[in-house]
Simulated scan of single mutants.
Amino acid sequence: MKHVIIPIFIPHKGCPFDCIFCNQKKISGQMDEVSESSVRAVIESHLNTISRGSLIEIAFFGGSFTGIDREEQIRYLEIANEYIQNGPVGSIRLSTRPDYIDDDILTYLKKYNVSVIELGVQSLDREVLEKSNRGHSIEDVLTSSKKIKDKGFSLGIQTMIGLPGDSFEKAVDTAKKVVELAPDIVRIYPTLVVKGTYLERLYNTGQYKPLSLEEAVDLCAVLMEIYESNHINVIRVGLQPTDNICDGGDVVAGPFHPAIRQLVESRRALKDIEEIIVKNKLTGKKTLAILADKKDVSVIIGQKKSNIKYLKERYNYEEIKVYTDSNKCECYDVKY
């Protein structure tokens, strides 16, 4: 069954903190305030384009939902819940801060059929949290994550890499700590310098250096391996491109790429293939034959054939062939 999310962005509502990387109106592309009528309009617009039989979910993103005025939260939830009661929508998800979760909040979220709660954790390193002005502690993350799971919600964890004070080792350590929380889903966002943020000021004064695209891809490949080897679904890598989040838009610096997840998957494939080459001593051959599923061909080849070019240069292959039919490739060197 196809899973379709109807996203409703509520930029910077419910959050009293100014995280140094945050400008939710720029990031979400949602510049106007959200009204009850606009929520209905967004839902109706999406429903008109969704095929029958899809699993539909309404998602409140962009702000700290449970930090919004309680009455306003209820009005949004009541609208979304109407579409569950009337049939076309199956569930509701929302994102919020780790320090804006308690038993009372979870009780009324359950009443309105919220099924997934995503926490904006960003890092589980104290120095990174402090330098980013997150305003919550690691203990808040541990406590709220346990409460969410104990109440029967699906838990999502949103993380960032490349924040001030972060490092490869700290990012890997955060991933390992996230695994211990046993979330159902994870998002990984390489930090971008967005216009109108304090991080932009630090970047312009030379006090902050963002990750390069290569560094971000390498690190995300490692983190995805950690999560997926522990049966945790990574549902997004990188911000969704919008009219604002794009080359020439509001991204001042940082590892932005409209298809960064594909780059990460290609890097993982390249690493796997290299390990097979070395383990099976496949160097010194003129031709390398790879047998793969059709869905994996693009990640094996890489964007602009980057993986093929690398393997040829690194191992002196004259030709690399990727097959999808075992009948045409009975003597393959690598099966991926």
Score class of each variant (00 low, 15 high):
I308W: 03
V334H: 10
V186F: 02
N133V: 05
C22M: 07
L163T: 10
C331R: 15
L202E: 11
Y108H: 08
R134N: 03
A80I: 04
K312L: 11
S145M: 02
V121L: 02
I161R: 06
S38V: 12
V39Q: 05
K151F: 09
K147L: 10
A41C: 10
F17H: 14
G284R: 14
G135T: 05
M31F: 13
R236W: 02
I92D: 01
N280R: 15
L288E: 11
I20H: 02
I58T: 03
R126Y: 00
D218R: 13
D103Y: 11
S28F: 07
I301W: 09
Y317P: 06
R70T: 10
N204R: 15
D32K: 14
D325A: 11
K286D: 15
Y203K: 04
L199Y: 00
G238K: 04
L192D: 04
V194P: 03
D272E: 15
P183T: 00
V128C: 09
E214P: 00
I56L: 08
T174Q: 05
S266N: 13
L219I: 13
V222E: 14
V299Q: 12
G254L: 08
N86C: 12
Q30I: 08
I8N: 02
S95T: 04
P11L: 07
D32Y: 09
D218W: 07
A171R: 01
A292S: 15
Y198Q: 13
I58G: 00
I79E: 01
N113T: 09
G53H: 11
I188A: 01
G248F: 09
K328C: 13
G206T: 05
Q303N: 14
V179Q: 02
K285C: 11
K110E: 10
D296M: 14
K2T: 14
R314G: 07
S144T: 06
G156A: 03
L211C: 03
K305R: 15
V234T: 10
A269L: 08
I58A: 03
N233F: 00
S145K: 01
L219C: 10
D293F: 12
V334L: 06
D293T: 12
L47F: 08
G62W: 03
Y198T: 06
G206F: 07
T143P: 00
Y189A: 05
C22Y: 01
Q207T: 04
